[in-house]
Design a protein around this nucleic acid. Structure first.
Length: 485
RNA sequence: GUCCCUAUCGUCUAGAGGCCUAGGACACGUCCCUUUCACGGACGAGACACGGGUUCGACUCCCGUUGGGGACGCCA
């Protein structure tokens, strides 16, 4: 009895995927998964000026990175259609729009508008409190207008917004939303260059692709009114809409570039995990209804059924996102985490042992200190002897009266051993010997040693850290700290 | 300006008339763990925008005010 759920995400390929877009895509994806439905990717590329294949590929790559795979749409590599309802790129559906446009034109539900940009601009300037574009004084009869168009006179096609009735939309998020029809003016269906415009394509495609539910941002509310009119004029069945609250910046304005990082790609490049981004944006405007905040994709799928969506906007809190990323990062299996980290080490020219033992031990020490993947190079750099350097932070410690003695004693201890690495026990023993010999304890003791190991007074626990570094390298480091040549 | 949407700690949120002296999380503060830094743990501070109704009873329902946001494109 219940029809199959078909939802879509319909980005326009202009730049990277925005986090708001990621959330919209996620909700639609989760809803499809939750209902056993189909998730469709449609490309809204009718704006020739701004849409590029490069952007398209960037968006597809972002979606893939997030793991939001689609059942119908276009192949991310070949960009070829996949599915029964194609083409899935609006730029390849032009004849379809043309056909429906002619239908509306011939029925008198739409008309050719021969006014130029300049004329329209003049009209806008003329009225003080301009809100809507007025209908032209004399609309040519269809046949006559068509003839003129065929002769090459440019004209846009506008939909006639006549009625004075209110439209009621049963919104999945907001309940009954009443929109007065005169809220919008006669809107464009086809540009004068022959390209159809968003509201028209969207309505036609959603109808033809048999979309059942549309989750999209609140800013589309007035478009929904336009699209409803198109649906009705063409006799299509309206899908269910759910208008999502907006994601806001710290100043409560719609999240945009001036708020800093807003594209998925930026987060990807600064060391965020896709599962963290998904988890975080999922909770911006929706909650599972309990106190659980860390959710896997599977849990999200299971719990997201299109209800419990918030009506008010949500501020994107970078701090909390960072925290959530650190939680997902710590939950990651060591080997998987290492695979994420490897390219970063290579990029920074940090050479590290790659045996299982080292990976496990080092990650156990450094994982709690990482918030993003990008924190790893700083943490691991001191392990690589060739990159060892004494930082300014260490100056104070080096200046302590007893520090040179600690350095010497530490070096002597290291020289007593012969194995490549010290064990944690051997380190303890060595440290105790230094303590007895120099007669210092506490900060006076371990801070100089830490400086001699990683070049700075703060960092990971020495007992776990020292066994990860070659003894020879440790000796070289003390020398360097002491200023030996 | 017009229309639409919206309103619980600084932020994300739980709360669907009595379970609320309003719960959780981030951030913040104190303490514990720790010979540093993190992680972890305990505790603390911190909110129902305001005014009217409805009701025996409102954070929860209705109306208004105020605040915030969005739309008003031959962008999507």
């Amino acid at each position: 009895m219940s029809e199959t759920v078909r939802v879509r995400f319909a980005p326009s390929p202009t730049g990277y995927l925005h986090v708001g877009g990621a959330r919209t895509a996620l909700y639609n994806y989760l809803f499809a998964k939750n209902k056993g439905g189909t998730f469709i990717l449609r490309i809204e590329d009718t704006d020739l000026e701004r849409s590029t294949d490069e952007s398209l590929r960037m968006q597809l790559s972002d979606l893939q990175w997030l793991g939001l795979s689609w059942d119908e749409g276009i192949d991310p590599d070949t960009l070829e259609d996949q599915g029964e309802y194609g083409p899935y790129r609006q730029s390849q559906r032009l004849e379809i729009y043309r056909k429906y446009c002619d239908e509306l034109l011939s029925k008198g539900l739409a008309y050719y508008d021969f006014r130029t940009d300049e004329e329209l601009e003049k009209i806008k300037q003329a009225s003080e409190k301009f809100t809507r574009i007025p209908r032209p004084d004399n609309i040519l009869p269809f046949e006559e207008a068509q003839k003129k168009v065929r002769e090459g006179v440019p004209a846009a096609v506008r939909f006639k917004v006549d009625g004075k009735e209110d439209h009621v939309i049963e919104d999945l998020v907001r309940g009954e939303v009443r929109l007065p029809e005169d809220m919008v003016s006669d809107f464009i269906l086809m540009r004068s260059n022959g390209m159809p415009v968003y509201n028209f394509c969207c309505a036609i495609d959603d109808a033809l692709m048999e979309i059942t539910h549309v989750f999209r941002a609140e800013e589309h509310l007035s478009n929904t009114l336009r699209q409803k009119m198109i649906y009705e004029a063409l006799g299509f069945k309206l899908p269910q809409f759910g208008h999502l609250s907006l994601i806001l910046g710290a100043d409560k304005q719609k999240l945009s570039k001036r708020h800093g990082a807003t594209s998925c790609n930026q987060y990807r490049e600064t060391g965020y995990l896709p599962q963290a981004l998904l988890n975080f944006v999922a909770l911006l405007g929706w909650s599972p209804g309990n106190d659980q905040e860390i959710l896997s994709e599977e849990e999200l799928m299971e719990k997201f059924d299109g209800t419990r969506l918030h009506t008010a906007g949500a501020v994107f809190d970078q701090e909390k996102f960072k925290w959530m990323n650190s939680v997902h990062l710590r939950a990651l299996e060591n080997q998987k985490l290492w695979n994420h980290l490897k390219p970063l080490f290579e990029k920074e020219n940090i050479s590290l042992p790659e045996n299982e033992d080292f990976i496990h031990k080092s990650l156990e020490i450094f994982k709690p200190k990482m918030e993003t993947l990008a924190d790893a190079p700083e943490l691991f750099r001191p392990i690589d002897g060739k990159l060892f350097e004494v930082t300014e932070e260490a100056d104070e410690v080096i200046a302590w009266e007893t520090t040179p003695e600690v350095f010497n004693a530490w070096e002597e201890e290291l020289k007593k051993h012969h194995n490549m690495y010290l064990t944690p026990e051997e380190f303890d023993e060595a440290q105790n010997h230094v303590k007895e010999k120099v007669g210092v304890k506490g900060k006076q003791l371990f801070m100089p040693i830490r400086v001699a190991v990683i070049g700075k007074p703060h960092g990971a626990d020495l007992k776990s850290l020292v066994p990860l570094i070659e003894r020879e390298s440790l000796i070289a480091r003390v020398k360097q700290c002491r200023g030996d040549k």
